[in-house]
Structure formats: C-alpha cells, structure tokens
Design a binder for these strands. Structure first.
Lengths: 352, 352
DNA sequence: ACGTAATGGTCAAAGGTCAT
DNA sequence: CATGACCTTTGACCATTACG
C-alpha cells in the first residue's frame, strides 16, 4: 500500500496506515500507545482547544490525546507489552560508574595474565632441574630424545597445573580429567611455541632438534612437520608473544568439555575459561603491540583446531609406537596420554 | 468441522484445527512455523515458567515455544519454504530488478555473508529432492537411518561446495582435499545446528530423531550425545543464528591446513578464510542482536575445537562399523570420510 | 468430483528499537 | 524521559495439497 498522499487525521502529517482505528502517522501512533500503556494523564495549560498539527502536536499532550480519541483511536486496540525482539543487554556487574577510568594498561596490568606469566616463569626455572640435558645440545634428536622430552614435559605440565589455584580448587576427578584431556595438546603447543625462532625444526626440551622431515623418528602422522607448518609458522607470522601463549594454553586447558568433567565441575571450569578469555581478548585488542593487525584475535583462537588435530595424531603415533615396541612408553605417559586400558591400571594414580 | 467450541491447547484461544500435531489457534500455528523456519532461539527474561494464555501469549516467546513443544507440536511437521503464491511483482507488470522485490528474508548487508546464506537456502530446497523422507517421521532413528542421512548430507555438501565460486576457482586436487578434510565436520556441524530446538536428540535429515543415549545405534564414541552436549547446547546458549552458522561453516571448510592442499593453493584458501572471518567478526560485533553479549565472538570460534574432536570420533565410529560390518558404507562416504585404502580406489573419482 | 484436514503464504496492523 | 522514523512479529484470512 502506498501512503504517500494519505494524511494523518490527527495532525496532518503523512500517515503510515490505520493505527488503533484512525489513519495516522507513526508519531501519533507511538504517542497514543505510550499514553495508554503508561496510563499517562495530561492537563492542558491553555484553553483546552490547542491546535494539533505537525508543527505543534508536541506542544500540548492533553489536546493531542483528545484529538486521538475524537478521530477514532480506541484504547482497547493497544495490547499488553510483548516480549523484547532483542534481549536486554546483559552487562556484567551493572555498574554505571564504568565511565572509562582509563587506567592505561602499561604492560601486563591484568592480574590473571600476570599470574599465568609468573607460573610460566616458575616452570622455566623448574625445567632446569627436571631436564636431562644432553651433552651435545642442538644435535638431531633420536626416538629416545623424543620420548624423554615428552616425559619431561608431562611432568612439568602437572607441576604447572598445581601452581594454578583455579586448578587446585577443583576436585581430584576433575583435575585428572583436565590433565588427561590436555596432555597431548600441551606437548604440541609447548613444542610449537618453543620453536618459534627455529626454521623447519622442533626444539625439544632436552635441547635437541627434531627436523620436520627427520627420518630417524617414527612419525606416521608427520606430527613434527605439522607442528612446524601448522602452528609454529602461523605463530611467527602473528608475532605471538608469551602473554598470548600462556593465555591460549590456559583456554585450551580449562576445557569444560573434557571427558570426565561432571556437571558440578563444569561451571567452575567454564568460569575460569571465560575469565582467561576476557583477559586474553582485552590484551590482544587493546594492549598488544599488534592490536591493529586485522583479525589477529580470531587468528590466534584459530590456532586451537590444528593444535587439537595434531595432538590427536600424536596420541595415535604413541599408540602405534607402543604397539610395535618402537619406543618405551613411560608410566606417566601411559596414564595421561593413552586411553584407559584394562591391561594397566584402570585409574590414574599418584599423578596429582 | 466446527471449531467453535474447540480451544487452543497452548493458549486457550479459539482453535482452528490441528496444527503440527497440536490443536491450536492460528496465532500459535504461525508462531511455531516462524520459529522453526527462521531457527529462532529465545531466552526467558523471567523465571522460565511464564503463563501462556490468549492475553499474555506474546509476552514471552521462550515460554510460548516451550508450551508448543510440550503440547505436542513437532518441528518436523513444518515443511521447507514453498514458492511464493503470488508472483513478486504486485505493481508494474515488468519490474526491472530481477531480485525479489518483495521482502526477502532478512538480507544481509555483507555480500559475502549474503552469498553464503543464499547458497544455504538453495541447499535447503535441494535437500527435498535428495532426501528419502521416511514415512513416519520423528521416529527413533535406526543404524540405517543414520547412514542414509550421512550419505544425503555428503551429497549435499558436494553440491554446496560447487555453489561457492571461491571453491570452484580452486584446482581439482585442492577441491578434493577440502571436501575430504571437511566431510565429517560438515556432518557434525549440520546435525548440531539443525537440532537447536530439540532437547537431548539429534535431528537427522530424513526427519528421524537420534536420541543422545540411543542404544540402537552403535556409537562407541558417544558422538550423538556429544553433538548435543558440546555443540547444540552451547549454540543454543549463544543464540547462534543462521548467518553465524554459515560463516563458521565456511571458516571450517576453507582450511588451508587441509591435508593435500599444496603451497600454491594455500594462499587462495587462506585468503577466502580471512575474508569470511572479517565478515563474520563484523557481523558478530556490530550487527548481531547479541553483539553486547561478552566474549560472544570468541565463544563462537571456540565451537570449532569440539566440532573437530567429535568429527574425528565420528570417523572412528564409521571405521569400526565398517570393520565389523555393522553398517553399509556407501562409496561416497568411503571416499570422503575414510582414509585412502589400498583395497579400494586410491584416488577419489567423480566426486566433484 | 468433492469435501475435509493439514500444510502453505499474505500483509495490515499490532509490536519494539534507539539516535535524537 | 519522550519522540518518531524505522524495523520485526503477529494472526486473520486465503491458497494448495493429499487423501478417501
């Protein structure tokens, strides 16, 4: 319908259709609805017969409302309030004083990221006591180097987790579930970030190097090559720094969907993840030196799917190695990385 | 039939017949159809048990929809969109703009997202010609239903890809690589989003339902349960809509890390992914009705890792089924989902 | 052929939104 | 807080389809 030449019977403005019984404009329509809904009651400050036209219709609400009724608008045509089309903005905290206190975040102002960084530094120190450093460093890694390094990393992962009070607060069942779910991802992620300054090789914790096409080490799923190509290279291109690394690691670790996390712990884990996510996003978008790089936040998060894929293939490789006796699988590695097996302990023990 | 004394089981208004499985009025009928068609997802602003009667039925859409389901309305009774009854040109005989002059279903400003939505709509129509609809819909799915539905979805995936010119421009080797890499993820993602209005069940394309704990179907990895718990439920909590769904699907599909994508094609695929990412972020942060929901963008992206994990377990399940002869594995499924096998064709053929 | 029941689509007139 | 240009949703009404 074309309302171009139809005028509002109340004020003479352009009408947009019949509303509440009278051909009228959107203004008079809205005015009438609000008046009825909010039970407004007006008083005329003048003689009670004010002109109601497009220019003066807002001058006297009493007289405008009178005209609405006189021209046929019916109160019963106004319905009760409906559902919101869009949901109300769920703002956290609901504090209205949030007007930018604008404390410029210097470097690592965020306490959560700060905590993660500190734990990471502790781990770097601890690593020296755990690592069996090979005498001639930087040589080509052997299968034995790889399993050694993996074992060391798993020990460190457990220590790392124990340093996080968000982890310590969880019940033991959940703790074990998170560790098991994360172990392979931890290995892959650490190896990838640690190698960010190498080219075409993975730097193991015992300071040997595993070249991405090394034929010495059984690797049907080409895990080493994919760590380099799918993770380390993108990390380098994104100029990923340690803050972002520790945050992303925590996001992957606190995964409420980990097998074995029950409904009670789900919320705790999810809450921790959301807090890290908040700090992580805040850092990447407003603090980081590369905050202007388009889509950087998304691309950092998109490191997680390939990380997961490679982790799963790593588990497959370890299973194959165990099956064919190509490498010795340590007890901790067995408990953390391989699926529960009837032939070994049904429940991980002494891990935490 | 005289409906004078029949009342709507949902709101108590005068019923006009049985609609979608429940005696109801035209209002509840239309409301239910629109909800299903547009994949609306509501949130109750109150306690979650609002009264639903003739006067207040529009006050809370969440609770109205809940009552619709509780009173027996079935989503599978809502059919796919038909052709317009009236030709779009209601005014001048020959309207020049070929595109539907009548209100198109929520066109998006972004041309890329618009393209993805249009292809999705095309697929919905095509589905009708591919799907072998079971006579009694909504029954419990059998193993045969599951494999049938998977086959249909794989056929549709190939058609879907062929409708994307960003895909058509790639060389055939890359095309096959992307399809193989995405196939299982496609099945999981479609099933998850399609089931957003069901509870505790997955809605298959042949309109049967697979309950998350169905004992009928072999599912050692509990894929159905995890689709519901790890994907559908979070999607519902995030109020994910179709735009976000098609964008996320494209981001997962155009994965330059897919096995078999060579260095030349890498950039093309990556470029497409980055463009979709750009549009996706733009939409979620500035256009979406839920743009104020904190960390929404990150949480949408974080759907991808569980999606990938479930997809890989689905492949495992299919392999097991094949191994034990529990289900017939179609040739297309074999080529797209299972690893290349020396006993069958070494190279996929006739897929694209 | 015809009625009936269930699906579909239409669009005026309700509703809500949010910069001003 | 109120306004009103602009957009979404509702539901009375009519068309189409399947079946006996």
């Amino acid at each position: 319908m074309n309302f171009e030449n139809v005028i509002c019977t109340i004020c003479g403005d352009k009408a947009t259709g019949k509303h509440y019984g009278a051909m009228s404009c959107d203004g008079c329509k809205g005015f009438f609805r609000r008046t009825i809904r909010k039970r407004h009651s007006y008083v005329c400050r003048f003689g009670g017969d004010c002109k109601v036209d497009k220019a003066k219709r807002n001058a006297c609400r009493k007289c405008r409302f009178e005209v609405c009724l006189r021209k046929g608008m019916r109160r019963d045509a106004v319905q009760t309030e409906r559902d919101r089309i869009r949901p109300a903005n769920l703002k956290s905290g609901g504090n209205s004083n949030g007007s930018g206190s604008s404390r410029e975040t210097s470097t690592v102002d965020d306490p959560l990221l700060d905590q993660l960084l500190k734990v990471e530094a502790t781990m770097r120190q601890l690593r020296c006591t755990v690592i069996t450093k090979t005498s001639d460093a930087r040589r080509q890694a052997t299968t034995c180097d790889v399993t050694d390094s993996m074992n060391q990393q798993l020990i460190l992962m457990v220590e790392w987790a124990k340093n996080l009070d968000q982890f310590q607060r969880l019940d033991m069942n959940t703790q074990i579930s998170l560790l098991r779910h994360f172990s392979a991802q931890h290995l892959v992620m650490c190896a990838a970030f640690r190698s960010i300054h190498l080219s075409d090789a993975v730097w193991l914790t015992n300071e040997t190097c595993l070249h991405k096409d090394s034929p010495k080490v059984p690797d049907v799923n080409r895990v080493a090559a994919r760590i380099v190509d799918h993770l380390t290279t993108p990390m380098r291109q994104l100029n990923m720094n340690e803050i972002e690394y520790v945050a992303l690691k925590a996001i992957a670790f606190f995964d409420p969907l980990a097998k074995g996390v029950d409904a009670n712990s789900y919320n705790e884990v999810e809450e921790t993840r959301q807090k890290v996510l908040e700090s992580f996003e805040q850092h990447v978008r407003t603090v980081s030196a590369y905050k202007e790089m388009p889509r950087r936040f998304a691309n950092l998060l998109l490191l997680l799917p390939p990380m997961l894929a490679i982790a799963r293939d790593l588990i497959e490789d370890v299973q194959l190695c165990k099956l064919f006796g190509l490498a010795s699988i340590d007890r901790l590695m067995q408990e953390l990385m391989l699926p529960p097996d009837s032939s070994s302990d049904p429940q991980p023990q002494n891990v935490v």
